[in-house]
Amino acid sequence: MLELKNVYKTFNAGTINEKLALAGIDLALEDGDFCTVIGGNGAGKSTMLNAVAGAWPVDMGRILIDGQDITRLPEHRRAAYIGRVFQDPMMGTAATMGIDENLALAARRGARRGLRTGTTRKEREEYRALLADLGLGLEARMTSKVGLLSGGQRQAVTLLMATLKKPRLLLLDEHTAALDPKTAAKVLELSDRIVRENGLTTLMITHNMRDAIKYGNRLIMMHEGRIIYDVRGAEKQALHVSDLLARFEQSGAEANDRMLFS
């Protein structure tokens, strides 16, 4: 479904801040895979997701979705295949626009935008039902500006936007890291539910190893721009946090505090 073939990316090449962020990534996701991604700070997790999303061109290698080479496709055209939720709740929504308008923008992802009405009455009714489903009371505040919502509410709306038009691939970039623990757990449960109900192929970065084991059918660990561990199915379900920590140490990586405590 998603294939990365020998992908390289260096930031600030030729300067003192040169950083090899992706050092030959090879990854193939099957249709319907829900793959969690773990690794220390600077391991290249976000960089890998951004490479897939097309935030900037990669230095080498190819990226394919459904066999189609998207390596050279600009970000806004890849969006036709990809739904994204970011770590920063501010990043995924337009703060000065209404909840309904944000959803309407997402509903037209991959479609031509012309001079038809931006938000029709009919789709507002659909959104009302979908928002009610979230259980956050947002259906009563459809026209409120998204900027007035809390971080957790914004992430929930962003999640809805990312999946409103069923994407071929869903990218979740530590999307609960900026939320308080209770809200984070709620948003994570919601993500899991949406992914499973729609059978979405998903890459989810998390710093929390227990979450990485609990959710999804596959887990990859990254270190210094490479995938150093790839496990799936029953073997993955049987993992313990201690196994993952052992792996970390084997690779010479230092498991940082955040992972230990989470």
Partner: peptide, 9 residues
């Protein structure tokens, strides 16, 4: 950023 993620050029 959001606009590009939603497929807007």
């Amino acid at each position: 950023n959001m606009a590009r993620a939603q497929g807007i050029n």
